[in-house]
Computed example of a mutant assay.
Amino acid sequence: MSLITNVMDHSLDDGYAEAAARKQSLGQGGLPRTLRAKLGLAGGLVLAALVVTVGAAQARVAAPAVAKERQELVDRIDRETAAADRLEAGVDKLRDDVSARQRAALKKSGGGQADLVGILSGATAVHGPGIRLVVNDAKSATAGGEGTNPRTTSGFSDTGRIRDRDMQRVVNGLWASGAEAVSVNGQRLTALSAIRAAGDAILVDNKPLVPPYTVLAVGDGDRLSTRFQNSADGLYLHALEESFGIRAGISTEKDLRLPAAPSVIVRTAQPSTEKGTS
């Protein structure tokens, strides 16, 4: 208690008190004593007040202009966003029109096999039993973007990351195991699809994908799962899990729904009009 009482009674250290008393005795402390010093202090205070006042006045004058510029920028962003939404709606409408024309063309040229042709070509949406395969980078791998950026790392030196060639083997293994339709992260694969890398991103039909990669394959679920896991490509995926910590999970599903491919355009191949010879 004596220590607390001493601190309360002597809040200023004795050394500071002695220094202040010494300066006061020498005439060095307190306010200026001479007229010149007082005038200098007054001038300094006036100058500081003037600077603050001018700054406040300028900020007040500039505030409406800044607010106007900000509002103009917000309006411009709103206009451009609305224009982008209209263009996107137009693209969706044209895509639906193209899909309808493709189905009509398939029905006209494919006869009774139009539905089968549409399914195999990826031109029509499909549903049915199959498997869901989710492949993800290793926990120790460096991946960024929080779902918005495909990759924000220094390159493919990280062996705990899924690469384009790994995804190619997975997809090819599913086709070879009997899959009738395949999609990756909602991207329907066709005979014209390509899986490649651009920088650090994996592209499926030129669309960058973000891990984890969800691969849906329509087919005989149990048989497809068993054949894939026992195939060379399934064993390759298992080796990635064991050696590099790649995460993969496979499950059979009773009803999977795969969208149609955005565009199925053949620019070079033409139907043959020649009849085969026996």
Rank of each mutant, 00 (worst) to 15 (best):
R70P: 00
L31S: 15
Q71F: 05
A62Q: 13
R60K: 14
A17K: 13
A67I: 02
Q102I: 02
V66S: 12
S99W: 02
T53I: 09
A20G: 02
P32E: 05
V52Q: 09
L94M: 15
Q28N: 07
R76Q: 15
A37I: 01
L39Q: 12
E18L: 12
V74M: 12
A17F: 06
L39P: 01
L35C: 07
R22W: 07
A89I: 01
R101Y: 10
A67D: 11
A83F: 03
V91Y: 15
A57W: 06
A57H: 06
Q71I: 02
L35N: 15
A37V: 01
V66N: 12
D78H: 11
T53A: 14
A62I: 01
G55K: 00
V61E: 14
V46P: 00
Q24F: 07
G29L: 06
A20C: 07
R22N: 09
R22T: 09
A83L: 10
V98K: 00
G43N: 07
A82D: 08
E18G: 03
A56Y: 06
R76C: 05
V51W: 02
I77S: 12
G27C: 02
K38S: 06
R95C: 05
A67R: 05
T53E: 08
G43A: 13
L41G: 03
G90I: 01
A82N: 06
A20M: 09
A89K: 06
V46R: 04
L73P: 00
S25R: 10
G43K: 07
G44D: 05
V51Y: 05
A59M: 10
A62G: 03
A100V: 04
R60F: 10
Q58P: 00
V46H: 06
V51A: 12
D14P: 01
A21I: 08
L39R: 13
P64S: 08
L73F: 13
G40F: 05
L94I: 09
L73D: 09
S25W: 05
V91C: 03
K68L: 10
R36T: 14
R86Y: 06
L45H: 05
V98R: 00
A84L: 12
A48S: 12
R33Q: 15
